[in-house]
Design a protein around this nucleic acid. Structure first.
Lengths: 141, 141
DNA sequence: TAGAAAGTTGATCCAATTAGTCAAGTATGG
DNA sequence: CCATACTTGACTAATTGGATCAACTTTCTA
């Protein structure tokens, strides 16, 4: 399971917004792309998704930008991944419904559930806090 | 994380071979495709991979087919998935190496590790045995 | 009040991966 | 010697993820 760029970028952007929650001015897209090396208009696309999920607010016009609209502690990485990633695991039922088939699905569902559990128990607040710590450490080097 | 058809088919084929290990004659590809509804030449492609991994033996010529070449208890689903699935998670280092970036990777690695653990502790023997049970149950219905 | 700076929207494109196919060849059993 | 079955390698088609563009609207500021 490799992390998709979409989810990756979305998470980076949200971390950035979480860390700058206290600032009064919204954060411009340009700043985020510059800081994290995210391809320009692609991030816009992603932010649109985050906005329709209600997690960020956009401010238009000059001096506009984005601002976090939820408590970082209330947003889990699983939610982010599911909102931004693949639309939904397409419920394509397999052609043949044999016992072997069911078994295989059972195991894979269990595996997938295990990884989802990890993401579900990590909040944006945690990951942002840990990032801030690392940033501080870098400062001393 | 959705299971790829490749891995799915490979697992089905191996279950089939595991269940018929006791038979003296090898199992023909045709039989496997018929029983599990796997597209013909695609399974051949997959079996080739399994053969080069040393998990199945091929017998050529008339009455030929495939035979399991390892102990089902020694083969985990993780091994199968890794052999047959994506060549290798491409080690493409991200452009920018920021603390946020590292954090995101850390969490996703943990998630991915959790699901791998599930697959690693499930052996072909287990899943074959459970399939056989289900088969027996179906018999009575 | 004009224009520059931002976000908005929708269409579009490209490349990589995955799924699936074909055809020509080789080995084996009867 | 021929039918059956695996071998090999190239090839096509479809989906998806990643990324871009252009035309538009909103708002600030000079």
């Amino acid at each position: 399971m490799t992390i998709s760029a979409r989810v990756h970028y979305a998470t980076l952007a949200l971390i950035e917004l979480a860390l700058r929650q206290s600032e009064k001015a919204p954060v411009a897209v340009r700043e985020i792309t510059r800081r994290h090396g995210i391809p320009g208009p692609f991030l816009v696309q992603i932010l649109r998704t985050l906005r329709s999920a209600g997690w960020v607010q956009s401010v238009r016009g000059s001096q506009g930008g984005y601002r976090l609209a939820v408590e970082p502690a209330d947003l889990t990485l699983l939610e982010i991944a599911e909102a931004v990633g693949c639309p939904e695991s397409n419920g394509q039922t397999d052609a043949t419904d044999t016992p072997a088939n069911r078994m295989v699905h059972e195991v894979w569902d269990a595996a997938s559930e295990a990884s989802r559990a990890v993401l579900a128990r990590t909040t944006l607040a945690e990951i942002a806090a840990r990032t801030a710590q690392d940033d501080a450490v870098m400062f001393y080097i």
